[in-house]
Simulated scan of single mutants.
Amino acid sequence: MVGSASLGSGALAGAAPSTSCGPARQDVAIRSTVPLLDWSENFGIDARGDLWVSRVMRGEVQRYDREGRLTATVAIASPGAVRLGPDGLLYVVTGNSPLAGSGGIVRFDPAAAQPIPERFAIGFPHPNGAAFDADGNLYVTTGNGVHRLLPDGTEDMDWWSGVDVEGPNGVVVSGNSVYVTANFVGADGPVGRVLRLARDNPADTTTIADLTSFGSLPDFVDDLVLRDGALYVTTLAGHLVRVDPKTGATCTVVSTQPLTAVVADPANPSALLAGSEEGTVLRISPAL
């Protein structure tokens, strides 16, 4: 999340929030051209396995092939999450900035020679994360909660009215579970939290884990992905953290620069791709 993610980054960077998951391999998948200007806010993977990177500071989404070569650029204002829809189109959050005003969702055909974004939904303050469920509904995290959009772009207002999540950021859906990262100020101070909402009843909300840095200080949680039954969460302090969604147990996969997003690597079944504020895209292979 641009804006919130920048607060306190120098104070938190480099601290370990939990025990190590074991040795992990880390290398550069896509190198930043201009640090910070290349801020890699989020990712999406199209049906061909190409990676689309949201360069939020540049106002564009860039396509890279499996060799890491830049092959296309689509202009989108303050892009956030990029998600492949059941119709084969890519859906991109736009307006992911506290300065952007009202934002929304656009979509385009990633296979087109010159993709042209078209509006899908509007009217969301500072939208950021997004995820589809098995029925084609799109969940979007925004400055005023978590929204569920039906396949025709209209909002399920009954679902939204049942949600009570402050400071949502990343979101991923699996079965009846909607996993959300959230950052807010609680009774004991700032909290970076991983939550589970029930898809059929969003009022049924469970805290899975609170992530910390410097032993007990809170960390800022950003994006997350579910892979092989585990959640992988990126944090401002530069950690990729594995969270067991059943027990809440956590361990640190790697500690590096501030991380913004994470996705399964389409070219490597054992690896994840992680974005960064600096702009570099890292390939990380967790210990098994």
Rank of each mutant, 00 (worst) to 15 (best):
G10E: 14
P17G: 11
T19F: 10
P23I: 01
R25A: 15
Q26H: 04
A29N: 03
A29Y: 13
V34L: 15
N42T: 04
D50R: 13
R58I: 11
Q62D: 11
R63M: 04
Y64Q: 06
R66I: 09
E67A: 15
G68R: 05
T71C: 02
A77W: 02
G80I: 02
R83T: 14
Y91M: 00
V92L: 05
T94H: 14
S102M: 11
G103K: 08
A113F: 07
Q114R: 13
R119Q: 12
F124P: 00
H126I: 14
H126A: 03
P127E: 10
N128V: 04
G129S: 09
A134F: 05
A134L: 10
L138F: 01
T142D: 09
N144W: 03
L149T: 09
P151I: 03
T154Q: 07
D156A: 10
N169Y: 01
G175F: 11
F184E: 06
V185K: 04
G186S: 02
L197A: 08
D200T: 14
N201D: 15
P202N: 02
T207S: 14
I208M: 09
G215M: 10
S216E: 12
F220R: 03
D222C: 06
D223E: 13
L224Y: 08
V233T: 02
T235Y: 11
L236D: 07
T247Y: 11
G248E: 10
A249G: 13
V254C: 06
T260M: 12
A264K: 09
D265L: 04
P266N: 12
N268M: 10
S270T: 12
A271V: 10
L272S: 03
S276Q: 00
G279P: 07
T280S: 15
I284D: 08
L288K: 14
